[in-house]
Amino acid sequence: MFRLANAPGGLGWPPAVFWSATLVEMQLGLEGQQRKFSSQPFVSREEVRRMAVAHGKRKSLRTDPRATNWSERKK
């Protein structure tokens, strides 16, 4: 599997990506490479639109001072 993921003719993933990938990500990567897309989106665009309308507009978390900005937090 490691050779398949890292080989230039394979997925071409760097080792760090391979070792952090889940089995689902590996499966989707292989399906994409072979142009065989067996899974359909589990949420349609229409369903996303209905959910957005149902929940209405809300303030962005970016404007909330209590929200954690993970890219700016101290290490």
Rank of each mutant, 00 (worst) to 15 (best):
M1W: 10
F2E: 15
L4V: 14
A5K: 02
A5H: 05
A5Q: 03
A7N: 09
P8H: 04
P8F: 03
P8V: 06
P8Y: 03
P8S: 04
P8C: 01
G9L: 12
G10W: 00
G12P: 03
W13C: 00
W13D: 04
P15V: 08
F18M: 05
W19M: 15
T22Y: 01
T22D: 04
L23S: 09
L23A: 11
E25R: 05
E25Y: 02
M26F: 11
Q27N: 13
L28W: 07
G29D: 00
G32F: 02
Q33K: 15
K36M: 10
K36I: 11
F37R: 15
S38Q: 12
S38C: 12
S39G: 08
S39P: 01
Q40K: 13
P41R: 08
P41H: 05
F42M: 15
V43Q: 08
V43K: 08
V43G: 02
R45N: 11
E46G: 04
E47L: 07
E47C: 06
V48Y: 06
R49L: 15
R50C: 02
A52V: 10
A52R: 10
A54W: 14
G56H: 01
K57R: 15
K57Q: 15
S60K: 05
S60F: 05
L61A: 05
R62V: 12
T63W: 06
T63R: 03
D64W: 01
P65K: 05
P65D: 04
P65A: 06
R66P: 03
A67K: 01
T68Y: 08
N69P: 00
N69Q: 00
S71H: 07
S71T: 06
S71Y: 05
E72W: 02
K74E: 14
K75V: 09
K75I: 05
